[in-house]
Computed example of a mutant assay.
Amino acid sequence: MNNNKTISEITHLWKADKKMYVKKSSFSAYVLLTENHLLPAFGDKFTFDEKEVQKFVFKKIDQGLSQKTVKDILIVLKMILKFAIKNKWMEHKALDIQFPTKRESNNIEVLSRSNQRKLMLHLEKHFTFRNLGVFICLSSGLRIGEICALTWDDVDTENGVIRVRRTIQRIYTIDGNTRKTEVILDTPKTKNSIREIPMSRDLIKMLKPIRKVVNSTFFVLTNDIKPTEPRTYRTYYKNLIFNLDIPDLKFHGLRHSFATRCIESKCDYKTVSVLLGHSNISTTLNLYVHPNHEQKKRAIEQMFRGLK
């Protein structure tokens, strides 16, 4: 067993290997997690044990990282460990890591029905291509990267569908001591994210006359050959709802609002999952199958009506 390689050296070799098989965005995420978390903690070591990793996990949670982020870091650590074992640089180590009991709320932030109506009415009355993007997101549940990457060629008003085939994101790249960011246009993260979403009658009515005169290769949000990136569009959206006096809601809340309205309308969970492009239905169930305040209130009122 050749144990003369540090975790830092193994990680360097693992990155060179991994880069050949994963998307640029995934590789960027892996590199950031190693540089920011794993190498500072384990880089100069030749080995580590479960006790050290458990201590690392508690430290990261104490520093304010979410359990999801810490679990993502552990996934990368285990990939590096597997690579090291395969190349006989380390012996197999079973890691049974424990996490504190979560006491976080399952509630997700969505627009109230009244605020959603208010926003959609404003978007219809004050047409701009950027406003149209917000309306499309509320009508389809698109992610911000997906709406930024949408071209007119993806909008099929004859068949009444929007085809989601690409996403735009800004990724961090690390080359030696140089760190920079770049915007990339890429396929969605999973094959389930490549999907067709039926358009509502209102959306078709809005898009049909525009679709006849625009350049098919142009991006929807800019109506130009050059797209806008998510952080720029996020700023525009934030100013939009602020000026409408709508409570602050992250852009991703539009997607949550779309899904919540579907669930409230008794849409089956599998269909909602497919519309959202989730990799499996459990993601949809975990996110949205929780009664909100209005539903709980209705249940109590219904119970007391039964008593009378």
Rank of each mutant, 00 (worst) to 15 (best):
R113A: 04
C137V: 14
E124Q: 15
Y30W: 08
F46D: 00
R255A: 03
N3G: 13
K205V: 02
N223R: 09
N159F: 08
F42A: 04
P209R: 05
G141W: 10
I281R: 00
V272Q: 02
H122D: 06
L276S: 09
D248F: 10
R201G: 13
R170E: 09
S273K: 08
E35T: 04
Y237G: 05
T34Q: 05
S26A: 12
G253H: 09
C137R: 05
N107W: 03
V110Y: 08
R113P: 05
G306L: 13
M20F: 03
D72C: 03
F135T: 04
N215E: 15
F251M: 10
E196R: 07
M120C: 15
T11L: 01
N159M: 06
G160C: 08
K23R: 13
V214D: 10
K191H: 10
R170F: 00
K51I: 04
D156Y: 06
I73F: 02
T283F: 13
V110K: 05
V164F: 02
P227V: 07
F27L: 14
H37M: 00
A16H: 09
I61L: 15
S26G: 07
N192R: 13
N131T: 06
R298E: 15
D154C: 15
F135K: 06
P198V: 03
I168R: 02
V183C: 04
L119C: 13
S114I: 14
S112A: 12
E50Q: 12
G306R: 13
M303W: 12
N243L: 14
D96L: 15
W14F: 15
E9F: 06
V70H: 00
E91H: 15
I10L: 11
G160Q: 07
L287D: 06
L244S: 10
R234H: 07
R170H: 02
I136C: 08
F99I: 01
K212W: 06
T187C: 01
P227T: 10
Y237M: 11
G133E: 02
S26N: 10
R165P: 00
Q98E: 12
S26F: 03
N4Q: 14
I147F: 07
K125I: 11
F83T: 01
D72V: 01
T260H: 01
I75K: 12
R165C: 10
N223K: 11
C267H: 07
S66L: 01
I144A: 00
I97M: 02
D175C: 09
L150Q: 12
Y30E: 11
I73S: 00
T284K: 03
D224N: 15
I225G: 09
S216R: 14
M90K: 14
C148M: 09
N87M: 05
T6S: 12
Y172L: 09
R234M: 02
H122W: 12
I7T: 06
N106V: 03
M206R: 08
L244F: 11
L254N: 07
N4G: 04
E196I: 05
G176M: 10
S273R: 08
D186H: 08
R211P: 04
T11I: 03
H12A: 10
V161S: 05
Q98V: 03
T235Y: 13
E50M: 08
S112K: 12
